[in-house]
């Protein structure tokens, strides 16, 4: 049996007057996960996502979502699109929006409260959207897009306007959804945030999706909080690790295969590890290589 692609683009094109915004893009995503669509402003990320979700038509080409053409409206029972906040009615409340979306999906009313609590907007659910801050609107858009527990989720700049705690919450939700098997394709400018949620990046340049050899550019760091920072630092330096001090913690650049040895070496010297966090970086370097460094 042939495996059904989660997303398949075949030679899609989009032209606005003389500008070729999307130029013969083909893409197949057949493994669940989080994918980041990255590119500078105006490169066509939103146009690509709008075209994929049949919000605007492509001039040519074919789009299939979960094995069905994107102009089959029923596919959107399992596919969601987090759009920009202009899609919200400023004179309606968050509850009104969620109720409408739940009604369209045939979901019970209790789902509204569940999803509102999940994205942390219970406190202002009944307020008019016109009174919402940018971050609150993002929360509502997120709630709208996940209320139906989609199999495929497109997100256009989901981190725009979020304060750090909201950004952490959104990151947690994205990772939760990924664990539940949802494939997420998100566009974002925030490369550091992208590094935290995915290692699968699609660059959009001159209307084309560019495949990049990301593995060679990725750096994995582990941030340790130790019971004895000074001894730990000396130990790691003596063992030849590349380290940096960061907010009272020690950041060690090391690949995944070497982390167990590093941890063992710390513990063998009687130093307790209070906390350990993984951080992957490298998108920024890749971005600069792809699009050039802005002077």
């Amino acid at each position: 049996m042939t495996k059904i692609a989660i997303l398949e683009l075949q030679h899609v094109n989009k032209k606005y007057k003389t500008a070729q915004v999307i130029d013969d893009v083909s893409l197949v995503i057949d493994e669940p996960g989080i994918w980041a669509l990255v590119g500078p402003n105006g490169v066509g990320k939103t146009t690509l996502l709008n075209g994929i979700c049949n919000i605007i038509p492509f001039n040519s080409g074919k789009v299939e979502l979960l094995g069905q053409p994107n102009d089959n409206y029923t596919v959107f029972k399992h596919v969601s699109f987090l759009q920009d906040n202009t899609v919200l009615f400023h004179y309606l409340s968050g509850y009104d929006h969620l109720k409408y979306v739940c009604d369209v999906h045939g979901l019970p009313k209790k789902r509204i409260k569940e999803v509102a609590a999940y994205v942390g907007m219970t406190g202002y659910l009944e307020k008019k959207v016109g009174d919402y801050s940018l971050g609150m609107k993002q929360h509502l858009l997120l709630a709208i897009s996940i209320v139906n527990q989609p199999k495929l989720l497109f997100m256009d700049e989901p981190l725009t306007g979020l304060d750090p705690s909201s950004a952490i919450l959104v990151r947690k939700i994205l990772l939760d959804l990924e664990k539940q098997g949802t494939t997420i394709i998100l566009s974002s400018h925030n490369l550091a945030e992208i590094d935290r949620v995915t290692n699968q990046i699609l660059f959009l340049k001159n209307g084309k999706i560019i495949e990049v050899d990301r593995e060679n550019h990725m750096e994995t760091h582990y941030i340790f909080k130790l019971s004895d920072k000074l001894s730990g630092k000396q130990l790691l330096m003596a063992s030849g690790y590349s380290i940096q001090e960061e907010n009272g913690a020690i950041k060690v650049t090391i690949n995944e295969s070497g982390i167990d040895k590093c941890i063992k070496s710390i513990q063998d010297n009687g130093i307790s590890i209070l906390d350990i966090q993984k951080e992957v970086t490298g998108s920024e370097k890749l971005y600069e290589e792809t699009f050039g460094k802005r002077e």
């Binding site: 919000i55 409206y73 369209v104 999906h105």
Partner: peptide, 15 residues
Amino acid sequence: DDNTIKLTYGLPVSP
């Protein structure tokens, strides 16, 4: 004009 139609366009609503 204000793009709010896109909310419905992104949902499983038949024409």
